[in-house]
Design a protein around this nucleic acid. Sequence first.
DNA 1: TTGCTGACCGACG
DNA 2: CCGTCGGCCAGCA
Length: 108
Amino acid sequence: MEKGFFEKTYDVVKQIPYGRVTSYGAVAAFLGSRGSARMVGWAMNSSKNLPENIPAHRVVNSSGLLTGKQHFGGGNIMVELLESEGVIIENDKISNFMDVFWDPASEL
DNA sequence: TTGCTGACCGACG
DNA sequence: CCGTCGGCCAGCA
């Protein structure tokens, strides 16, 4: 049986290396559905319900902007998590996005 | 069951 | 540069 969209999404996100980030669109494209980027974010939202720890903070939008920051408790938890991993964030946006960007289609 | 919504992205004017 | 629209899939009332 083929894995569902959510399972595949979790699988990819969990494989994001330390100090690296990726975009919803990149994950969606890797899964085969470029237009289903929204589903990736939706999977992250559902990931809270999972017993496993999904590094959803390593997933941002194509601009490197931490759009899902507010879903991490309303504070800047996501920012601090990424900064603790060496990611430079400025104004809720990753400055060295190109340096820390991890493309599943290329790396995986 | 139908219909709306959602942490997005790319295209168009 | 900025606002708007369509597409994609799954969960929920």
